[in-house]
Nucleic acid binder design. Structure first.
Lengths: 335, 335
DNA sequence: CACGTCGATGTAAGCGTTTACATAGCGATT
DNA sequence: AATCGCTATGTAAACGCTTACATCGACGTG
């Protein structure tokens, strides 16, 4: 592979000049520049990133840490992040950490070793319930800017882009109540980091409407269709009654729809169902699922925009909020 | 940030010895090794990858080129690839190319610039119909080993891991025929690279059973639920009749199920439906979708295994075939 | 006892860039 | 004509590591 010396020799200029051409420095005459470019093209030269990295101590790469890129929502996020990063001239270094805290710590260390220019953390269990467990993120932020997608953590060099999950759930719950529902089930998963935010919204809506919060109607469960289906059927059989279900994830909602069929409940007549993320799944069910869309595209674009702003030394707010929107389909009936 | 000289100084050995410790060289006494490790730990030292890369001309990184990681099947593939690569000690450099040929060419050039140790190409439109358009892959293979997932191309340094798509479709089509279906619709998308392989299987099955192939029953369409739904309803309204649908992608099958409902056809009584990829979507529909599972997990693991074997100088077959399996659910009824 | 061997460690060159600083050439200013 | 300043270009050091080769001491062998 040709290196900068080959180009230098062949084009009769010094390596410094070649390097200047490479970096688009203005202090090179048009003539030399063209000559050098011609030689580069002729020899099929590509600069060596390692050498470049050594000098500049950057590789124009952003690390994406994602708990599980096979989750439809996260897959979308990774996709849009990658697209947007590239648009801004950055490459993506992907890391799927899974849900184990220790793994996440290990991966984070690893990714920092790679000398990425910044980090984007995305994914369900982004933040541990115990704040002490999040120290590793603060540690990372002391090296490079860290962008949290759908999670909030305070600290120098840590920025967040979040949806108004609390508000969205509060609003949809309120609408369910206004449409006459009184016993609203709330299902959430541990993997969904903002599950607690959403729960907060749920409780707020109940309170604002003078409905007492029934612990039996709040369920933490794994993010799995079949499991949810059986849980709900079981609850129903054992006598629990409910007339609406709000879920922190579409998959749970799919399970709820299946369960309704098992129980002989009509949707949305006997049971209204609301999902979250507005994923492809919402279009597959019958009836089609009403879901809260958190604009993963906007979310991703904003995360990248903010991060690159930080790179350029701009000051940005520590927290940026994106509004999400309810996409109404067939599993609900309210104004 | 501390560098190798700091460690050397602090531990009273030369940088060569430090480097040896770093690389696990056997020619370091246990005592020195421990001392050096202690100092590294104390100073929080992490080797600089660029410097390392400069010397070794490798960064233990594999480039993953994926047309669209928001596609559920590809998202899964990317996930498993990343997991397996890490297990083998490699990092992943992700690149979502989209479906434009020119983009793919650009990205490939870019990714090679990064000095990856190898490439894994995954994704629907992996291979262009026109063989000349695939030259850029051969070009890439002249630099580093290239692994094709679900696509075949001959050339030095190009390896493939594929499912027996042709056989799987042939087999399922035959079973549909045996169950009494005569007018079987075949739907495929341009994005699905193996759509043509699958089509071949479809035709083979018809031929083997003495059924004439009706061009009207073979449709190329975009990979979209709503679009498929409307197309089928339209065809039905305009008089086309069919009693089974085989699809090259689950999303098409979801559209078909929706269309059946529109047309008042019962599934699987009037219409049997088969999807492909056995994605999450298959579990969401009602009735649940029978789908061909191409073992993305095995496929990914095999791709990574083969590639790392190549890295180690082992000889591997240019083409490895994985068997796929039919997962029967509610949209079909045959033995 | 001289010598070869071997294992542990050190020295220094090299990897391919970037860039601060030096230099050369040339027109403008005095 | 000497000086200044500017632009285009060159020189060389630095980035942090790997590794071939050199060195050194200890030990076994004839």
């Amino acid at each position: 592979m040709p290196n900068i010396y080959d180009i230098s020799e062949r084009s009769g200029v010094s390596i410094a000049t070649v390097s200047r051409v490479l970096n688009g420095s203005p202090k090179v005459s048009e003539a030399t520049k063209n000559k050098v470019l011609a030689v580069m093209d002729e020899l099929g030269y590509t600069p060596n990133v390692f050498a470049r990295g050594l000098g500049l101590n950057t590789m124009n790469t952003v690390g994406i840490m994602c708990s599980d890129s096979s989750d439809p929502f996260l897959a979308n996020a990774v996709y849009y992040l990658e697209q947007n990063l590239r648009k801004h001239g950055y490459d993506s270094f992907l890391c799927c950490t899974g849900y184990e805290l220790q793994n996440k710590k290990n991966y984070l260390e690893l990714i920092l070793t790679k000398r990425v220019d910044g980090l984007i953390l995305v994914g369900s269990s982004l933040l541990e319930p115990n704040d002490e467990d999040n120290l590793y993120i603060k540690e990372a932020a002391s090296h490079v800017p860290v962008m949290l997608m759908n999670g909030v953590l305070k600290g120098a060099g840590i920025y967040s882009v979040v949806c108004d999950d609390c508000g969205a759930v509060s609003s949809v719950t309120e609408r369910l109540i206004k449409s006459g529902r009184k016993r609203i089930l709330y299902l959430y998963t541990a993997e969904s980091g903002s599950g607690l935010q959403k729960l907060k919204g749920y409780k707020e809506a109940l309170k604002a409407n003078g409905i007492k919060c029934d612990k039996d109607l709040i369920r933490l469960l794994p993010c799995d269709i079949e499991n949810t289906r059986h849980l709900l059927s079981g609850l129903y059989t054992s006598g629990l009654r409910f007339d609406a279900v709000v879920c922190s994830e579409d998959r749970l909602a799919v399970g709820a729809i299946k369960a309704a069929k098992d129980m002989g409940l009509s949707i949305p007549g006997d049971l209204q169902v609301v999902g979250y993320n507005n994923s492809l799944l919402a279009l597959c069910t019958d009836p089609e699922l009403t879901s809260i869309d958190n604009h993963v595209e906007t979310l991703s674009a904003t995360a990248v925009k903010c991060l690159t702003d930080v790179f350029q030394g701009k000051r940005i707010p520590a927290k940026t909020i994106i509004q999400n929107a309810l996409v109404q389909r067939e599993t609900t009936r309210f104004q």
